[in-house]
Simulated scan of single mutants.
Amino acid sequence: MSFNIQVAIASTRTRHYLTHSWKHILPHSQCLDNLDRIAQVVGDYDIVGLQEVDGGSLRSHFINQVEYLAQHGSFPFWYNQTNRNLGKFAQHSNGILSRFKPSEVTEYKLPGMMPGRGALMARFGSHDHSLTLFLVHLALGKRARQYQLDFVGELVSDYSHACVMGDFNCSLDSEEMRRLFANTDLCAPEETHLTFPSWRPARNIDHILTTSAVQVNEVKVVNQALSDHLPIAMEICLPQAPGAD
């Protein structure tokens, strides 16, 4: 699953970007209740990539939201990547929740004019059939996204069984995404899945992409409006390594 949780702010109307804007700076009473609801949703999955989480600051009651969701969703392994550190006011982060222990976790800084975007890589297994997952939250600007997708594309090219998930801030038919598909073994999904805004989905900007060696059984949008994005989920199957359990 990939889920942009908007720091546990449950926006359900366009006007909430204005009326709830203070929640991006100050703590609010609904934060923990919404985190608990999010934990219930993500708890049904084996691996979850989170965007727009707070690593522990004033606005999140100084709670690392990745750790909180791991505890309440019963994930034994979790990883937080803080990409924009504003001290006690905000810890802009990506996060991974997993029921499997990764054999490798690596943080990358994504290129761009404005710092503060990153990619988090987690590799599961060490044999030829291991799965390598890249979690991203890309820039709003097209030029920066292009640089970032070129960077991610180079990383992905080293792995046959790879998955890239996150908030790409662009649709599948955008110029930068078409270039990504042309330059890598990542496959363009057969269907378009609308995830934004959560109360009236009209844009497909949240994606889970896989290389051709990964068998995709199902892709779906989970209809849980707990953020301004809806989560997107995928069921995959990997070939079993010879002699593996």
Rank of each mutant, 00 (worst) to 15 (best):
L97E: 00
Y79P: 02
Q91N: 09
P76R: 02
I47Q: 04
K23P: 04
T19R: 09
W22G: 07
Y68C: 08
L97M: 03
H61L: 12
E52R: 06
A8Q: 07
V66A: 03
H16P: 08
I63C: 12
A39L: 04
G49P: 03
K88M: 11
L97C: 02
N64L: 05
A39S: 10
L86Q: 07
P102V: 09
G73H: 07
F77G: 05
G55Y: 01
Q71H: 13
V41F: 04
P76G: 03
V53L: 03
A90E: 14
Q51K: 02
G55L: 02
P102N: 09
P27K: 06
L18A: 14
S93G: 04
D44C: 10
I9N: 12
V53E: 01
D36V: 05
L18Q: 09
E67M: 05
P102H: 12
L58A: 09
A70F: 06
P27W: 06
F62K: 03
V66R: 03
Y45S: 00
A10W: 05
Y79V: 01
G55D: 00
G43I: 01
D33R: 12
R37E: 10
W22S: 13
Q81G: 08
S57T: 06
H61F: 15
Y79I: 00
T12M: 04
G73S: 10
N80K: 12
A70M: 06
F75N: 01
T12K: 10
K88F: 15
R37A: 11
R13T: 10
I47A: 04
R13A: 13
E67G: 00
T82D: 00
F77L: 01
A70I: 05
A8G: 13
I63A: 06
R59P: 08
Q81T: 06
H61C: 08
D33E: 13
Y17Q: 14
D46T: 15
V53S: 02
L50D: 01
A10E: 15
V66C: 03
S103N: 11
G56R: 01
T12I: 05
A90W: 00
H24V: 11
A10S: 12
H61G: 13
D44N: 13
G56L: 01
Q71K: 15
N34P: 13
R59K: 13
S60W: 07
H92W: 12
V53Y: 00
V42A: 03
R15I: 14
G49C: 08
H16N: 10
L58F: 15
F100L: 14
H20S: 09
V48G: 06
R59G: 10
D54E: 12
A8S: 13
L26P: 04
P76Q: 02
N80M: 07
Q6C: 13
N85W: 09
I47T: 07
L97N: 02
N34V: 14
F77H: 15
Y68W: 14
V41W: 04
T12W: 00
H20G: 02
L86A: 05
A70K: 05
Y68L: 11
K23W: 11
H20N: 11
S11F: 11
I9G: 05
E52D: 14
T82K: 04
G43Y: 02
L86H: 08
G49Q: 03
T19H: 14
N83V: 13
L69S: 01
E67R: 11
V66T: 15
N83D: 05
G49H: 02
Y17W: 15
R15E: 11
V41A: 01
Q30W: 06
Y68R: 08
V41K: 00
